[in-house]
Amino acid sequence: VLGGVSAPEGKWPWQVSVHYAGFHVCGGSILNEYWVLSAAHCFDRDKNVKAYDVYVGLKNLKVAGNDTQWFEVNQVILHPTYQVNHPIGGDVALVQLKSRIVFSESVLPICLPPPEVNLTGGVKCWATGWGLVSQRGATSDELQEAQLPLIPVPLCQILYGHRSYVLPNMLCAGDIWNRKTVCEGDSGGPLVCEFNRSWLQIGIVSWGRGCAYPLFPGVYARVPYFASWIYHNIKTTPLPVEPMPSLCPALGATLTVLVAMLAGPPVL
């Protein structure tokens, strides 16, 4: 996030960090105990989901707190229109974790907006992430936050030079005057707005022309447009099969027998 500040502890309890091969690559948001919402382009570099990890309850990338939890990824569902009508269109990914998130004061789910949510009228929206904090490539281990005004799509299309660049299922946000915007590494993270004391996620950080040009605002996947698809997939996709704790003693017994057999021959 360019032009942001470090977020206070627990202020954005739905924020997640997606790691690839041990490094932060993208953000995401908690939808429920098993599902995280992120950007499709965060996952198309490799089909091997084993290389991805998800962290929740994190404020500093290098410091695990009391509420920090780590998860392996069970499966990733990319939106069927990803890269179909636009190089980065349909940039939505649903990430199913192998085990359930334990919610706490610092780890909580975000709401999806209803498809007809009214985004006019000066709603206050915020973006968060561990992405670049300067145009020179400086990073921050501390989660950054920035309040960003929404920019009407027709204006955003003019700024980007052609209507086809910014589709209706995208939205734009950025503080042109104060040079606040999202940047590389914030992808997949949430753009959230407060409605009647509830926070709804209306955008997923997706793309932009660099981060340093204020007249090219950040472009987000428009979550209300994808809400039905998200809801349907979460409700119809089976949960992962988790190992049952009752199997542990049996495993222990097997190991004991095996060790005994291996230890046996030299005695004979």
């Binding site: 627990g10 939808l31 429920n32 709401c111 009647n196 709804l200």
Partner: peptide, 27 residues
């Protein structure tokens, strides 16, 4: 939601916890 807070305004995908709330508000 507890502690007198109204139900969340958005679509919740979590059955036991209110979505879009911070800290104790989410319980």
């Amino acid at each position: 939601a507890v502690r007198g807070h109204p139900k969340s305004q958005g679509i919740s995908l979590s059955s036991n916890w209110a979505c879009g709330r911070r800290g104790a508000e989410g319980r």
